[in-house]
Design a protein around this nucleic acid. Structure first.
Lengths: 220, 220
DNA sequence: TAGATTGTTAATCGATTAACAATC
DNA sequence: TAGATTGTTAATCGATTAACAATC
């Protein structure tokens, strides 16, 4: 019944924020929330909050607000968090190992079931009880296990090749940490974590704020 | 002369992408690029590319295109990459250590000069030749060194406190990896890397594409 | 009932795209 | 000069905000 209208990218990016805040509300045993509460917390207008939920059919009750538990469930369902995802991590360097050890994804149903690297010194070592296997064994592993998402934490120069291999093996989700724009086929989803882009954006913001402050303190 | 018109968030996010691609072009010794080339590479329209650069005054030459070297320099300057940034990393857990060891930021002028943690077992160990110091020594360190950016890689529950401390010490830039929305003062810039939000977005995209494929293969 | 707050349409705002004159 | 490609304005598109009727 929903999913028909186009969902803007901006809205998609807000959904996890709603989800996260609603989770904390639930932990705090708060059962009810208004669009105004939500808007203040996320720094947007209450109009937008209502418009966002209306987009998916509207989950609230006039004069009351939204029920935290059911709203959380609805958004979780929209986001596809009502299932688990198996992930294979490729590239067991510093970042890859840190991601693999990061436990908070598991709670949301994202579990790393295989770790791969091409460096022979790493093969056989364990991360969180998972053996690091050689990259050549990826194909075999994917055939024997259901892998939903490939986490790419290899150096940038290998990223395109790894992506191609992963796509050829039929994996439809890619979480890419290499700082390259990967061209994926239409039926494959990709999410990028571009650390250096984030730092550049931070530098830009800092520069702009500094200029503004200086201009204010030194008027002509 | 520039910086007067408002720069949209969407445009700010494109600047690092231009910058990165121009860097690779320069490495490949390609000295000239057209808005069409750039647009195809980044998956946007050439109109937008020209509009983007026009926003900052226009860096091209009619009938020729853009000079890679000078465009790179201009964008670097806009982004504030024409200087170096000293960073203090707070939270030397898995993710923190991985970030500290990640060498690619240094090349762009972002250098980690101090690492802090509250865990006594970590104090005195080294990451890339930098001693891990106790969090209590942060204040002293900031007084003796120029710290531009604080990298927050502590568990989410401590993030708000760490942010407050860092802001009180006069640091104007925060790179936050904890999955909370931090309320920073107006003169402080913050960039968030929200890994779990990224994963949720990926889950959403995968779900949507799956539905589309199923609908196509099983029409009523 | 009166008060509160959503659902929903319409208005506004801003970003993207189209178009073409300018000019190298 | 002719061809190419930007600079720049105008048109379009889409997202956000405003407003208020609906209704709990």
């Amino acid at each position: 019944m929903n999913c028909e209208k186009k969902v803007s990218n901006a809205l998609i990016r807000r959904l996890p924020k709603y989800y996260r805040y609603l989770s904390t509300l639930q932990q705090m045993r708060i059962s009810r929330v208004s669009s105004k509460d939500l808007s203040q917390r996320l720094g947007i207008t209450s109009s937008q909050v209502r418009q966002d939920f209306f987009h998916f059919g509207g989950f609230g009750l006039q004069g009351y607000g939204y029920d935290v538990a059911s709203l959380l469930q609805e958004i979780g369902c929209i986001l596809g968090l009502d299932r688990t995802y198996n992930m294979a991590l490729i590239g067991a360097g510093n970042l890859g190992q840190a991601i693999a050890k990061h436990s908070s994804f598991e709670k949301r149903g994202f579990q790393i079931i295989g770790v791969f690297d091409a460096n022979p010194h790493l093969i056989g070592k364990q991360i969180k009880g998972i053996d690091i296997q050689h990259y050549d064994q990826l194909e075999d592993f994917v055939k024997r296990h259901s892998v939903d998402i490939a986490v790419i934490t290899v150096p940038r120069i290998y990223a395109q090749d790894v992506m191609q291999r992963v796509v050829d093996l039929g994996i439809k989700g890619i979480w890419n940490f290499a700082s390259v724009e990967l061209d994926v086929p239409e039926d494959v989803s990709i999410e990028n974590i571009h650390l250096s882009e984030s730092l550049m954006t931070l530098a830009y913001e800092m520069k702009r704020k500094k200029e503004k402050t200086q201009k204010r303190s030194k008027p002509l």
